[in-house]
């Protein structure tokens, strides 16, 4: 466990809790893409199939349970409890445009043609693009609440920190995971424009507005 990976996981947990906090305290899913959260659910379920079969550490298992349960809770809040506040008209990204390619790529590029490895690869590829509906929604609505911006910053930072972790592990352990690294780089690059807006606007106390 490198420091970068721990920082990355904590940033990930922070993001997930920030989102739940925002929806629960404002009792509103306004500005939040339900589709992105649905796809994160798929990401965790398809990636952690080994939750009950392979035990790595208490930390590993705890985080897996946390990620799965928190993402299910988030989807429940958006699509059921606070359904009336869900802004479906601005959450128009076609999920199949990312789910199908991720599945096809997983059938082509995987570490073994087994259900588990294909499911894992699908999960890695899907996670790389799952944020697109949310980023799309922010550009469509033209702005994001501050706490939503902080959520996106924490979420984008988690995989960026994982990239530092992968560099660290390659340097010290001499091996790397091509699928995870490739997808992780794509995932982090997709946040590029958001990171720019975050650092030039939100940090200075201004609202995150996507300039028309």
């Amino acid at each position: 466990m490198t420091l970068f990976r721990l920082a990355g996981d904590l940033s990930h947990v922070l993001a997930i809790l920030l989102l739940l906090y925002k929806i629960w305290t404002t009792k509103s899913a306004a500005g939040i893409s339900g589709k992105t959260q649905l796809m994160f659910c798929m990401v965790y379920v398809t990636r952690y199939l080994d939750l009950f079969t392979s035990f790595i550490s208490v930390y590993n298992s705890t985080m897996k349970v946390l990620f799965i349960s928190a993402s299910v809770a988030t989807v429940y809040l958006i699509y059921f409890k606070f359904k009336a506040t869900y802004d479906g008209n601005h959450d128009t990204f076609r999920m199949e445009f990312v789910i199908v390619p991720a599945l096809i790529l997983a059938l082509i590029w995987n570490y073994a043609f087994t259900f588990f490895e294909i499911s894992w690869a699908f999960s890695i590829f899907l996670e790389a693009v799952a944020i697109l509906p949310q980023l799309f929604m922010v550009t469509k609505t033209g702005e994001a609440e501050n706490i939503t911006s902080h959520y996106l910053f924490a979420l984008g930072s988690y995989r960026a920190l994982y990239i530092l972790n992968w560099i660290d592990r390659y340097y010290f352990e001499g091996h790397w995971d091509p699928i995870a690294v490739t997808a992780g780089i794509v995932q982090t690059v997709l946040y590029g424009d958001f990171f720019y807006l975050y650092f030039t606007r939100v940090i200075k106390g201004r609202k995150l507005q996507v300039l028309p």
Binding site: R5, S54, I56, K64, F67, Y111, W120, N165, W176, D177
Partner: peptide, 10 residues
Amino acid sequence: NDNAPSKDEL
């Protein structure tokens, strides 16, 4: 199989 990198990460 053994060439699959370890799945010790989240």
